[in-house]
Simulated assay, not measured.
Amino acid sequence: MEPLLGNAGLVYCKSDAMNFSEAGYINMGRGIDRDIETMAAVVIKLGGFELEAKVSSRTTHVVSDGPKRTLNMLRGIARGCWILTQEWIFRSLERGRWLEEEEFEIDHFSSAVKHCRLEKQCFGPAFKQVLFRRCGPIFVAHNTSPPTTDLQDLVKLCGGRVAKSTRGAAIVVGVPVRNEQVACVSENWVLDSIMWNRLKPTKDYILERRLSSY
């Protein structure tokens, strides 16, 4: 599946206003601007949340207009956030209060959605992804899609080490290199591994080797 990447509106949950033990964000998905504005108005009306633009360590909720693989969706999965449909916001408006999240969780999108969220709830602040920890140094090429810095951030978020060059790297993402001892994979290796919370075999993402400046 080709990744649908990009950032969208987010909501920051203020712990002092809602008696939450930690802060959180809600991804508004890739809907049209009017949808974002409408949901933002609901958030203001119900209170307890602030709009943000990117999932961070304070994030607890990511709201999407559907099962689309965006950067914020992947960040949310990696951080163990709630991944919810937009219906959660609109149904909460109808009831005049924030509803329990389980009914609106997009767990059919990927088993990792619920698995990572439960781990985060279990371990709390100690929760940390270790998906890429044993992969060795990972080099991300320039001009990748999604952008290099976003891929590097995802790798580090999931416990990986980012190499500054191909020299000494165990895995190279986004460009083939001449060194046959190095696994050269497409960007989807990183994205798919995070999406399913399972390290995908590099052999399924190998790039054809050719002369390279790396």
Rank of each mutant, 00 (worst) to 15 (best):
L4G: 02
Y12S: 06
Y12I: 08
K14I: 11
M18A: 09
M18H: 01
N19I: 05
F20A: 09
S21N: 02
G24K: 06
I26V: 02
R34Y: 00
E37H: 06
E37D: 06
I44A: 12
I44H: 05
G48Q: 05
G48K: 02
E50D: 03
E52F: 00
A53L: 10
T60Y: 07
G76V: 10
I77C: 12
I77Q: 09
I83T: 10
I83L: 15
L84C: 13
E87M: 12
S92Q: 07
E101Q: 15
D107E: 14
H108W: 15
F109L: 14
S111H: 15
L118P: 07
E119K: 15
Q121M: 14
V130W: 07
T144G: 05
P146L: 12
P147F: 03
P147A: 09
D150N: 10
Q152Y: 03
L154V: 04
G160E: 04
A169R: 02
V177W: 05
V177N: 04
E180F: 02
Q181S: 11
V185P: 03
N188T: 01
W189G: 02
V190W: 00
L191Q: 01
S193T: 02
M195Q: 01
M195C: 00
P201F: 06
Y205L: 05
E208L: 11
S212A: 13
